[in-house]
Design a binder for these strands. Structure first.
Lengths: 139, 139
DNA sequence: CTTGCATCTGACGTCAATGTCAGGTTCTAG
DNA sequence: CTAGAACCTGACATTGACGTCAGATGCAAG
């Protein structure tokens, strides 16, 4: 497929796909006339890249994490493995932080629901269950 | 305290603190000579603002979420309440997404640990426990 | 071959949060 | 009072992930 179809199927702009290639995140074949060509695997890859972006990982780091783009992947795989584990743990800590922030928001919602607009922001709270919806104005 | 001390205690740059005030996130008193003054409550508030930033919430949204800065907070509190619940649920969904990404990273780590550098990126996986450390190169 | 849409490269614009610099003022120590 | 650190306002610079535009080229249909 060409770049327009890949963009349509992934919800990522054509501009971004070219940018990913610039950054070394995404490889592409070229047709005779020089147009980029992709196949099904690229759809998965682009979606995964989007997830990593959503996790706050920069394109440079993504390029380090996914060196399987077009490397022989034999000597550098050890380094990539370490970077991967490092970023994994960083993401885990980030999720834990966000869960605490979620708890803080819940405390804030609870404390402002009764009309008390107290500026004393919520203290540290234990981790929350992200799947529990808010009782007020949920959905 | 003055702005330098607040910066030191929160780990936020002086520049950012002034920016927060510009954006209506943070109020400050002024001394005779026009220098900003803060007290203990501002320390908590700045830290909370940082958490909201870390949750991917923009300064404009934060300003909408924390209108208690120096508003009468009587008529707009209903709107703020709705925005608060909205952002809370958005954050919860974001956390769920990140948990799936974490699972994907775990799958990637597992699949690359045995030397197989397969480009077939991990499928959708159920939510993970963010607190579990990685066995390889953990810590 | 022509029409027209998709694509190409390359460059500049944007936006948010922050860095940094300049030139002037306030506060604190001696 | 004086030196120097901290602070003030205002402005321009930076970074990352794009948007957007211009001018040229590829490609499928008639």
């Amino acid at each position: 497929m060409r770049i327009g179809e890949l963009a349509g199927r992934t919800g990522v702009s054509v501009r971004s796909l070219r940018y990913y290639e610039d950054q070394g995140l995404l490889a592409s074949g070229r047709s005779g006339g020089g147009q980029r060509t992709y196949d099904e695997e690229h759809v998965e890859r682009v979606r995964f890249i989007q997830h990593l972006y959503a996790a706050g990982i920069s394109s440079r780091t993504i390029a380090e994490l996914l060196p399987c783009v077009e490397r022989p992947s034999e000597e550098n795989s050890g380094t990539a493995q370490a970077r991967l584990a490092e970023e994994r743990d960083k993401l885990a800590r980030h999720i834990a932080d966000l869960s605490r922030t979620l708890d803080s928001l819940d405390s804030l919602i609870a404390s402002t629901a009764d009309g008390t607009c107290n500026h004393h922001l919520p203290e540290g709270a234990p981790a929350a269950d992200p799947a529990r919806p808010t009782p007020v104005a949920a959905g």
